[in-house]
Design a protein around this nucleic acid. Sequence first.
RNA 1: CGCGGGGUAGGGUAACGGUAACCCGUCAGGCUCAUAACCUGAAAAUUGCCGGUUCGAUUCCGGCCCCCGCAACCA
Length: 525
Amino acid sequence: MTKNPSKTATGSKKPPFYITTTLPYVNAEPHIGFAMELIRADIIARAKNLAGHEVFFNTGTDEHGLKIFQKAKQNHKEPQEYVDEAAAKFKELLPLLGIAENVAGITFKFVRTTDTDHIAAAQEFWKIADKNGLIYKKNYKIKYCVGCELEKTESELVEGKCPLHPLMELEVYEEENYFFRFSVYQKPLMDLYGRGSVSGSSGVGERRDGDGSPVTTPFVVPSSRLNEIRAFVERGLEDFSVSRLATKMPWGIPVPNDPAHVMYVWFDALVNYISTIGWPTDMKKFDKWWVESGGAVQYCGKDNLRQQSAMWQAMLMAVKLPPSKQIIIDGFITGEGGVKMSKSLGNAVNPLDIVKEYGTDALRYYVARELHPFEDSAYSPDKFKESFNAHLANGLGNLTSRILKMAETNGIKYDLVAEKEFAESAEYKTLLEKYSEGLDKYDIQQASNSIWDLIGATDKIVQERQPFKKIKEDRAGAEKDIKELLARLHMIGTMLLPILPETAAKIVGLVEKNKMPEAPLFMRK
RNA sequence: CGCGGGGUAGGGUAACGGUAACCCGUCAGGCUCAUAACCUGAAAAUUGCCGGUUCGAUUCCGGCCCCCGCAACCA
């Protein structure tokens, strides 16, 4: 088997591919950050599917825990009622973002941590980890600020005091909790990070893709995040609490054989990555999507680095399951000037407002090309509008109009001979390499840039060869030019398929039917 | 000395030892197939500060200043 999917011989089966987002916690409205994560995962899912892989695409909602319990109470609702409504809201987002819910070859799943099969899976997971000796009970010191009437974590304290009530002594009491033996996984985790990394490959038990080829990209992408988690694990790990007293916080999955405790939400939520693909009841399905595929590619924000790349991996080891395939870390979307987005600052952006004004593909374009694939990026309405006008209206949309107008009025049709010729050109090969390499590295911006390189080069050709003028004295020459332009446009549409599915399908369709768009693809704003 | 990332034209980014590149915006010219779109050209950066290594540093080393995450049970 070859490592490069594009080199796989026709007919040989490509391994299944599994990609997932994190499950957003439903204590707040869907925000732009989650929309971004979903769009990116969707682009990768579609691209893999188009490249011939069968794809499983998972997303959903995380619905247990104290914050949700409190939020439900605030709204005078039962927790279940509250999360049902919240989950529905997140689900509504999917079609507006153009998520591949109904695409042939992509199995889409929206998992909720309150689903009965997820609850059963989380309990089974706990039982196995417990049986393997990785869960134990111990007294846990709680620091309680009487002033706030709240428990305080170490990170909330300033010099050992509650910053809001620095004159009051914290009450300390002990509570029995279950703990996970995270500490024993320091070495195994370091090994995991070492393997498959570009530089420090150990050569032993390398991570393998479903077809047996070694995974050559780092376990955590980008590699700066891999360094970060490595440094964190290297400093030593402490066991972490994985339960809460049900009397204090009943909204969670009951701990097996101990109804006095519920699972801590992280422990519960992370299991979704395998419960969603049938573990532990449908092991055939699980094997396909977790074992044959080489595990999940997990998109998450940088605040999730530890949970995804350390805690979850250790948990998998505790139940003797193979690790995830890769963790892809996103940056955050910030407001203008890199200021954190927040409701209180009033600079939070609702993805639905953008979709309403500009359309689904415009938002997808912005995420794909204007946001840094791994670092923080600033969003501003002005920037959005500028890039929309420059690249979607003036760039892609206008190019489509001008080429199809020439083709339609002169009755010149797209044909495969011209397309084949262009596909064999050095120009196209270079672009395609940039495009595929970008997608392989999860650098969606690079992949998108290659398409806009082609758009720019094609605009230039129209200007230089002037087929609209040439047609008057040299019909054959102009026809050849226009056929090449049509081939180029067709190629642009094809490359755009995973990124702007709706627009891409439209372009491909128009070229094949030799029809000029009835209305501009993107109206200048 | 907690850990990590970063400071490059008006804005956003790239290059990472050898004339500082790209996109947006601005200005001038060209074209008329196209969505006042498109093409060409120009202006615009002493690459955070100070010192060192080097024939030569944005790029390597040391120090300093500033910004942004994280610092574990916060989902």
